[in-house]
Design a protein around this nucleic acid. Structure first.
Lengths: 213, 213
DNA sequence: TAAAAACTCGGGGTAAACACTTATTTTTTT
DNA sequence: AAAAAAATAAGTGTTTACCCCGAGTTTTTA
């Protein structure tokens, strides 16, 4: 029996490349391709794959939300995050949202096939190039941060976004009708969670998370 | 006679997708695919294409340099920049470096083919979605900036890079054996050139220019 | 309905960034 | 050799970020 694979990605070139690549494997079958999150969600009930290759950056919904919804509604689908983002925060978040695999778009064929087969067997798979660093991140996470990794709250994301849009703390405070000290506290917490010592690091994190640009 | 196309991109998936897509067109022929800038440069003399699809982000050399070198050495090759970066600065820079076309990786097939045919006729092609904005940028550029866009000097790039790496001005001064005031002056000039009021904007510009991340 | 997490706000201080200015020396270009 | 551009440096002052600390309120989760 073939492994049925669905692909969701807003880049036609990537879709085509994946399709072409996977069709060369006798034990794999591409069951559906989707260019946005809505199409994907609409189709899953009718056409349930074994594996879902999911891009994190999608036009309508982002991959984190999608992974959360899908892993909840269809626990039998093995989700593999397919992304350009080589970012510890995202890896953790995706895994927390129910993804079993995490590979980069510039992976080679072997990595991709190995990821698919591994996740098909219900085992987690992480891009080889990212393993070392991710492991270190996990280890570090057991020391400083409180628990369960540094996922950002709604307010924190909002403020991070404004910071990355070049608002000063005072301007953010005015905009949100909050005290300057509140914004500063949030900023400090953001720096703690994202492991950076200044706003520069925050901006880079915001960009990697897709909150701006 | 077929249009001969070379593709340079470090993403195997994109390479495969492009190859597959272009092979479906009778009047197009893929003459070579390259995963890095060195391979590309080494092969161009032997195997000269009509069109080069060039990724901006490459492991060894960046696309800007490559475009400059190639357009100089092989003026008959029509260079089309293929990128994720929807960014005015980059568009201008690439065109200045001799690229004739600029399209995004999430373009559809029609856009890609149209770009190839347009550039084959030695005419410039810009991603439709980017035209409006780019045009406005060009118009604006005729007012404020001195000439040919805001090109940064070597020192400025170096310092911008360090800023984006979360060095403070004092740390940069120590590292480069310069006065703190010198670094601050450079920083001010950078902010002027890049049209931003603080370091946040500098970091974003640095990332968009590919100086970090 | 407790407990936990998130959100809010403050004092007091140091270091860094930002904003205006001018000016000399060195390197590159013409 | 002259002109232009780049790199260096500084005076002076204001604003913002950063770093300790603590603590009350609201919302979410268990």
């Amino acid at each position: 029996m073939k492994i049925r694979i669905a692909i969701a990605d807003d880049h036609p070139l990537i879709l085509r490349g994946l399709q072409n690549l996977l069709n060369n494997h006798a034990d794999i079958e591409v069951s559906g391709i989707y260019e946005n999150g809505s199409d994907l969600l609409a189709s899953l009930a009718e056409n349930t794959p074994d594996i879902l290759l999911l891009d994190i950056q999608m036009p309508d919904k982002n991959g984190l939300e999608l992974a959360g919804i899908i892993s909840h509604q269809y626990p039998d689908i093995g989700i593999i995050a397919l992304t350009n983002l080589d970012n510890q925060f995202y890896i953790k978040s995706m895994l927390n949202q129910g993804a079993l695999g995490y590979i980069l778009k510039n992976s080679n064929e072997e990595t991709l096939i190995e990821a698919i087969k591994t996740v098909y067997n219900r085992e987690p798979y992480l891009e080889p190039a990212l393993r070392e660093r991710a492991w270190r991140t996990m280890v570090k996470a057991q020391h400083a941060p409180p628990e369960g990794g540094h996922s950002l709250t709604r307010r924190e994301k909002e403020i991070l976004q404004l910071i990355a849009k070049e608002y000063t703390s005072q301007e953010i405070a005015d905009k949100l009708f909050l005290s300057l000290r509140t914004i500063e506290t949030h900023r400090m917490n953001l720096m703690l969670k994202l492991g950076t010592k200044n706003m520069i690091g925050l901006v880079k994190a915001a960009i990697q998370m897709g909150l701006v640009e």
